[in-house]
């Protein structure tokens, strides 16, 4: 197994009086796309938010690239090299596409070669470069959210349900873009409800239930084992295609 860029050891998270994560153990290998699957309310989004420091872990440790980031603030975690695309995309609707991208570039300037590559992945962004992000369609906003996360090379991308609410044609194109991204060696932790996308993209997988990781392994193994899918997810992947 490749070395782990991210490791969660016994992470608990409380939100107010609610105990959401009950001792998460998770490993994200470097250079791979790891899928985080689970039913609604399993704790997937909370896991990503805890990694980003948006909610503090009440117990346990988060190690990133060998460094304990459990108690770091969100800006420090972002500066350490983790990019985050939240479920609601986090687009600044009143800012233009260009301004959204510039904010994600640390020194305020975007490398022209990288921008060209991003435009190759998501041509709509070039077309709507000077328009307010709020005027974009749902799919285009998702493209912008992902483009913003990759505007500069990052060690790890955390992406929360990028295909949610998108039309099937857009989902297929999004999957192609992720494949392209994977080919650059990017490390990605992807929360997904769309099992077809999970099967096509995932190298490894972690399945969550009730705030715990209940399965870890290769994505290909889970994709082949319909009994395990039934047990872990309640439905077989084939039923979702």
């Amino acid at each position: 197994m490749k070395d782990a860029i991210l490791r969660l050891d016994g992470v608990h998270t409380h939100i107010g009086q609610y105990h959401i994560l009950h001792g998460i153990d998770l490993v994200v290998p470097r250079g791979q796309l790891t899928m985080l699957l689970g039913r609604n309310g399993a704790g997937k989004t909370t896991t990503l938010r805890t990694i980003m420091g948006l909610w503090q872990a009440s117990k346990g440790h988060v190690h990133f690239d060998g460094r304990d980031i459990t108690k770091l603030s969100t800006p420090d975690i972002a500066q350490a090299g983790i990019a985050y695309v939240p479920e609601n995309m986090g687009i600044f609707a009143d800012l233009t596409v260009r301004e959204n991208m510039i904010l994600a570039a640390r020194n305020g300037e975007i490398d022209p070669k990288r921008l060209k590559w991003i435009f190759g992945l998501f041509p709509a962004l070039e077309k709507f470069w000077s328009l307010a992000a709020g005027t974009l369609s749902g799919g285009q906003k998702q493209m912008l959210a992902i483009a913003r996360a990759i505007v500069e090379p990052r060690e790890l991308l955390l992406i929360d349900e990028p295909t949610k609410g998108l039309a099937p044609a857009i989902i297929m194109n999004m999957i192609q873009a992720f494949r392209e991204l994977k080919s650059t060696g990017a490390t990605i932790l992807l929360v997904e409800q769309n099992f077809m996308a999970a099967r096509l993209l995932g190298d490894s997988v972690a399945v969550m239930d009730d705030g715990r990781v209940v399965h870890r392994g290769a994505m290909a193994e889970l994709a082949e084992d319909t009994t395990l899918q039934q047990k872990l997810l309640g439905l077989s992947m084939d039923a979702h295609q």
Binding site: L121, S137, I170, N173, Q176, A177
Partner: peptide, 10 residues
Amino acid sequence: MTAVAATTET
């Protein structure tokens, strides 16, 4: 290179 463009959205 793959592009996320071939839809009526854009």
